[in-house]
Design a protein around this nucleic acid. Structure first.
Length: 611
DNA sequence: GCGGATCAC
DNA sequence: TATGGTGATCCGC
């Protein structure tokens, strides 16, 4: 969420707190300065609340590694400084000169950021919450109101830590639909100022108001003042805004007079350079806690400090980092603002955290669950993946990823599971006694499955179940999904276009399984399709009992359903309840309905089960 | 291309 | 007692 205030003077002294305690304060600290908060005290409380936990040990590890890395950076810096750097210096200056030529002062870009958005929306429904410290989010806080911030509570903070800082803190669950609806109201107003505005997240947007200002003979600050008033008036949500020559400076500026304020950096080179000169590098989007420490170690605290170090940056941090920092120093940034729909999606993923699991059956159930979730997301976004990645977080909080390139693009749960399982098995083999706290799947190298369908009247239709951006797919990609016109025509008689598309989808990718069967009498895809599968795995491991099963749909499904009910019975028995076990229909896996739930072993889910 | 790491929100 | 999920990018190999 957004951060608040801009008070370089109150930044904590690293030496006083130690790097670890600084790290534990969380990512939002330096972006959001806090007045009236005793940071030292807050730091102590967080430290003590975390001490001894696995999370803490992991943070300690990371901190140690970063400290070592910084030692290497300093050694390298010392080595470089004994050399002749005139070549590096000239190269840096040439690049700066080149950048300077590209400077464009003609645009008025604004960044709009809602103030404590989720909390603000909740306060609209329940005004009494305005007078108490309140936060939104379970486990980890998504955002909190300004009263809570006075206690040192922040977004991204574990809620039990927040409770230590502020025992009277009111915690609300997230209600995403509510926030989305409110965001839509706000966006409708922003569209009046720039119809091609760019949503950066649910509560942030960039607008290019150059044209609006020209057409209405208005100064940017005046236009923004008007827009903010209009948003507050009609949606009752206050927003802050930054006005500048580009997105980078606008973003920084929107934080300066937050909440309910705005700040402008004039479109003049001199003013921009002065603004950047004293700006802590951490304020720039893209500089996080790690890079901040690395830069600080070589004496770069503000963007102005970049210039005297320009000859060293490429060698120490790489070419990209140098170019990024050069642009920070000059105050350059993008002026191209465009709707997110124009952006090409690169990946689709899902992951969940759970209580520590070491049991292989349980892990397979989690993997199966993730596969089903990912299938849903891939269906919604209309993609298949050429690459599939498994992500796990060990009980120690260490994160590992393994990826594979299936023989063809995948999007069906069973395929996702089939290709992911060997990666999980290998990890289990390589890490004896592996215990996980998170498991996730990601598809990348995406292939669009958006197709032009033909309806009953022969009219082309563009199915769009969600406003998901229709990523521009290359002609080659589209060739992957040419539809069988005959089959399309037959399907056209059906009422629901979405069903039609799903069916076509299934056929087009030659998967031996029909993911969606609405009509009970609908026959399953004939067995022959199994043989059409590219590289059909001869055996599948059951996600529940992990025993290999013949790779035949009917046999596999029956076996899995049997295992599912058995698993349920066992849990019921273990839980010592006399509640009868609901039987799972044999074909339940073939219906894309909530009852497809996997053998859930989370305590929470078990409880739900018996309610 | 893969895996680790960082970053934003 | 207890520390999130999604997407993107960069680096070193």
């Amino acid at each position: 969420m957004e951060s608040s205030g801009d008070k370089p003077a109150s930044e904590p002294e690293l030496e006083d707190y130690g790097t670890l305690k600084y790290q534990l304060l969380g990512p939002s600290l330096t972006k959001a300065g806090q007045d009236s908060v005793d940071q030292q005290k807050v730091s102590e409380i967080i430290y003590n609340a975390s001490k001894g936990s696995k999370f803490f040990s992991h943070e300690q590890d990371r901190d140690r590694n970063l400290t070592l890395k910084i030692e290497r950076i300093l050694k390298e810096k010392a080595r470089l400084e004994r050399l002749d750097l005139s070549h590096e210096l000239r190269r840096a200056d040439e690049y700066l000169a080149e950048l300077e030529l590209s400077r464009d002062l003609s645009q008025h870009i604004i960044h709009v950021d809602c103030d404590a958005f989720f909390a603000a929306v909740e306060e609209l429904d329940r005004p009494e919450l305005k007078t108490v410290p309140m936060a939104v989010g379970k486990g980890v806080l998504t955002t909190c109101n300004y009263l809570a911030r006075n206690f040192g509570v922040r977004s991204g903070m574990a809620s039990f830590v927040a409770k230590k800082l502020c025992p009277q803190l009111v915690l609300l669950p997230q209600n995403y639909e509510k926030y989305t609806a409110k965001a839509k109201e706000i966006r409708a107003i922003m569209a009046e100022y720039d119809p091609l505005f760019e949503s950066a997240s649910i509560d942030e947007a960039y607008l290019n108001i150059t044209a609006f200002c020209d057409e209405n003979q208005m100064e940017p600050a005046e236009a923004v003042q008007r827009m903010r008033a209009q948003i507050l008036e009609t949606t009752k949500v206050s927003v802050s805004a930054g006005i500048a020559v580009n997105a980078k400076i606008a973003k920084i500026s929107s934080n300066i007079n937050k909440p309910n304020g705005q700040f402008q950096v004039p479109n003049e080179r001199q003013a921009i350079m002065e603004f950047m000169r004293d700006l802590p590098v951490r304020k720039v989007n893209g500089v996080g806690r790690v890079f901040e420490r690395e830069l600080q170690s070589i004496g770069v605290a503000t963007c102005g400090d970049i210039y005297p170090n320009r000859a060293l940056l490429t060698k120490l941090f790489g070419e990209k980092a140098f170019q990024f920092l050069a642009q920070c120093y000059l105050g350059l940034g993008r002026t191209k603002i465009e709707p997110v729909e124009n952006h090409e999606r690169k990946s689709v993923s899902t992951e969940t955290t759970f209580h520590e699991i070491g049991d292989k059956e349980e892990l397979r159930a989690k993997l199966w669950w993730a596969a089903q979730e990912l299938e849903k997301d891939l269906t919604r976004t209309q993609f298949k993946g050429r690459t599939l990645a498994l992500k796990v977080k060990l009980h120690t909080f260490e994160v590992l990823t393994r990826q594979t390139a299936p023989s063809r693009p995948v999007c069906i749960a069973k395929d996702l599971y089939t290709f992911a399982l060997p990666m999980l098995a290998k990890l289990e083999k390589d890490i004896p006694g592996m215990k996980l706290r998170l498991l996730g799947l990601r598809c990348s190298n995406l292939v669009s499955t958006q197709k032009v369908g033909i309806n009953f009247f022969g009219v082309f239709t563009q199915p769009k179940p969600t406003p998901e951006p229709s990523s521009e797919s290359t002609p080659t990609e589209k060739a992957d999904h040419e539809i069988d016109a005959e089959e399309a025509f037959e399907s056209a008689a059906r009422q629901e276009i979405q069903d039609e598309m799903n069916d076509l989808e299934t056929l087009s990718q030659e998967t031996p399984n029909v993911p969606v069967v609405r009509e009970p009498e609908e026959p399953a895809v004939p067995e022959k399709s199994t043989s059409e599968t590219v590289e059909p795995p001869p055996m599948w491991d059951c996600p529940i009992c992990s025993r290999p099963q013949i790779a035949d749909d009917r046999i596999f499904n029956e076996h899995m359903d049997f295992c599912l009910s058995r698993q349920t019975i066992r849990e019921v028995v273990q839980d010592n309840t006399e509640e009868p076990t609901p039987s799972i229909p044999a074909n339940s896996r073939k219906r894309k309905t909530p009852q497809t739930s996997p053998p859930e072993t989370d305590p929470k889910q078990k409880r739900l089960f018996f309610q």
